[in-house]
Amino acid sequence: MILNQWYSILPSKSIKKNQIVAVRRLNLDLALYRSENGELGCVVDQCSHRGAALSLGKVKGDCIQCPFHALEFDKNGKCTFIPANGKSSTADMTRYNVKKYLVKEANGIIYLWYGDEEKATEYLPFFYDYVDNSYAYSEIEDHWNSHYSRCIENQLDVVHVPFVHYNTIGRGNKTLINGPKVEYENNILRTSANNEVDEGQTPKSPEECTIKKTNLNFMFPNIWMNYITEKIKVIIYFAPVDDENTILYIRFYCKISKMRFINNIIAFFGKFANKIIERQDKKVVITQKPKASSLKSGEKLLVGDGPIIMYRKIREELKSKV
């Protein structure tokens, strides 16, 4: 994982008021909860007293209460009450504090800061310049038995399209890969497919290619967008579970009609198209070994793998920064 980044980990709608949800993200077992006033909190899913899962407890006001002995912890992980000691106790409870994690919400997404809290930024990664509240969207999720780096690379891979998606988005047998051209600016890696039917011509170099209006975009650490048209986009955030598992949250954004309810209908059916394409990818990507990708590996990459090579280089640079 890349330190000191905001990771998209879960849809906001997944956690209701007065509810606790146990999730595993970034190799961490977490208990996320909403207080009575809707405020979000996130602590390690383990009580400091006897190690029980806090996610099996309940919300008490602004705190999460352990199911075992009812110790209470606020969103900062501070132990605020130990029933066994009594309400009048003046004993120091700081030794019972639990690890808390910084979480924020935007765009219907819960973000978790992975790293040093004092280095946390205000900016939450998203494609703000491309989608807003005027778009309708639908969302599906799917679990892949793959490292999140492999899942991301698959969405930057223009070489696989005519083979894996031969009967969907890859129809036409365009197996010859021109380029592709790759750009990286303002934390966005951008590329586009420029594939052709192979009639014996020499592929164009990346320098000879341009990035098309329909293009692929990736924003570190874990959010991707397929810019299909000005009015249709697909966004995926790849929530790392651990070193071998990822949950993909896939959104279909639509603003084709001036009437919101029509866009809602189109978005609803759009998620089924997303599912068909995503499942074609999944059955191949989950077989890749090793589970995580790396810049220096035994893979024999092609010129057409330029977007993947750039992704790996940037990821390695970010991982090296502390």
Rank of each mutant, 00 (worst) to 15 (best):
Y148F: 15
Y148P: 05
Y148Q: 08
S149P: 06
S149K: 02
R150K: 10
C151N: 12
E153K: 07
N154Q: 09
L156T: 12
D157C: 02
V159D: 05
V161T: 13
H165P: 06
Y166R: 15
N167Y: 04
N167E: 14
T168R: 05
I169G: 03
G170K: 07
G170V: 08
G172R: 03
T175Q: 10
T175G: 07
T175R: 11
P180E: 01
V182A: 05
E183D: 12
Y184E: 12
I188F: 02
R190T: 15
S192L: 13
S192M: 11
N194C: 07
E199T: 01
G200E: 10
Q201N: 13
Q201Y: 09
P203N: 10
S205V: 01
S205E: 12
C209R: 00
T210L: 11
I211A: 12
I211Q: 13
K212M: 09
K213L: 01
K213F: 04
T214K: 11
N215A: 09
N217Y: 03
F218G: 01
M219L: 12
M219K: 10
P221W: 13
I223H: 09
M225A: 00
N226M: 05
Y227F: 11
Y227S: 12
Y227T: 14
Y227V: 12
E230V: 02
E230I: 07
I235A: 05
I235D: 05
Y237C: 11
F238D: 11
F238P: 00
F238K: 00
A239T: 03
A239W: 03
P240M: 10
V241H: 02
D243M: 05
N245M: 00
N245P: 00
N245A: 01
I247R: 06
Y249R: 11
F252K: 06
K255G: 06
I256G: 01
M259P: 00
